[in-house]
Simulated scan of single mutants.
Amino acid sequence: MSGATLAAGPRVPKAGHESHGEKFTKKAGDTAGLGGVMGSLRVVELQLVAFIVVFSASGLVPVVDLLFPVFISIYAFLLNSTVFRSYGKPESLQVFKGNRLFQLYVVFGTVIGLFLPLAYVLGGFARGDQMAVRAATPHLFLLSFQVLSENLISGLSIFSLPVRALLPILYSMRRLFSLTGWVTSTFFLTKLPPDPSFQDEAWIWFGRVLSATNAVYYTINLFAFLIPMFLPRAFERYFQERDHYKAEHPPKEKKPNQPLPTPSAPQDKKEH
């Protein structure tokens, strides 16, 4: 969700007999992708599709956010087919190899960005707090779409590295606007009742801390990881793969046009 799934490269099987013993060499446990945190890729995709359908049908997501994934998907396909064509093999698309600290970083982002906001939205439905639900749902919708896109792209390896790097950046930039609206709602628009109970105060502060933590985390993730670290490495690796591909597949030289042979003059017949 933070771009780590795409940064770590796709899951590809080993060649030969090792593919039976170890199905995948680029597991999320090694790459800090979301798949290692949430389990099977297909199960994650089904859950995210269910979230997206529910959020879309609830009427709580603005039209701009509903159309944003469609625009980004079309834009990514156009970039991949016209500007940044894929040259490398799936196993060469790894940009980072995550260590334990990187894994903790992704796990923390998964918990505060997906699990706790989902609990917050469900709690808002249970409490009848429509303002809390409406404020948190856009971020959760966009993040669910981003995670689904990252998992699909990482599993299918159909996009080149620059496109894979730009997707989480674009999603993160859009989600910062949603997070700003969530923070504004929890800190400035939500008011405590005249005689609040402990549960009321705890609920309000839970929303404030959760929204602020998400805003800080994804701001740091965008401006300290994706843009200065992930994006340059992705472009560097892409140009290396492109140069290597062109070196192995040089363009065929066209043979110079040879002049057509002139027909020989007919011999004069001997006079008898």
Rank of each mutant, 00 (worst) to 15 (best):
M38N: 07
P256M: 07
K191Y: 15
R164L: 06
L79R: 04
G33P: 00
G16E: 00
Y217K: 12
T82F: 07
A4Y: 11
V49M: 08
P263E: 10
E22M: 00
A119L: 15
V107E: 13
S58A: 08
T5A: 03
L116C: 10
G3Q: 04
K97L: 14
A215R: 11
L79G: 02
A50W: 05
A126L: 13
I227H: 05
F206G: 06
G181W: 10
I72W: 05
V44R: 14
G207F: 03
I169R: 08
S73R: 10
L210F: 05
P162Q: 02
F102S: 14
P168N: 05
G29E: 14
G181M: 09
T31V: 08
Q94L: 05
K269T: 12
H139Y: 10
S144I: 01
Y171D: 01
Q240E: 13
T180K: 09
F223C: 09
F223H: 07
L34Q: 04
P251M: 09
L142N: 03
P90K: 00
T213Q: 12
N80L: 03
L222V: 01
L260G: 06
L170P: 01
R233Q: 14
L114T: 05
A234V: 00
F225I: 07
L114A: 02
E253Y: 11
L116W: 04
S178G: 04
A224K: 09
L46V: 06
F102W: 15
G3Y: 01
I158R: 15
D195T: 13
L143E: 12
S197C: 04
T184W: 15
R175I: 05
F177C: 11
T82Q: 07
I158P: 02
Y75V: 04
K191R: 15
P263C: 10
A8I: 05
L46P: 07
A50T: 07
G35D: 11
H20P: 00
P162S: 04
T137N: 02
M1S: 15
L226P: 03
R134F: 12
E236C: 15
V216Y: 03
G35V: 11
Y105K: 14
V147Y: 02
I220F: 11
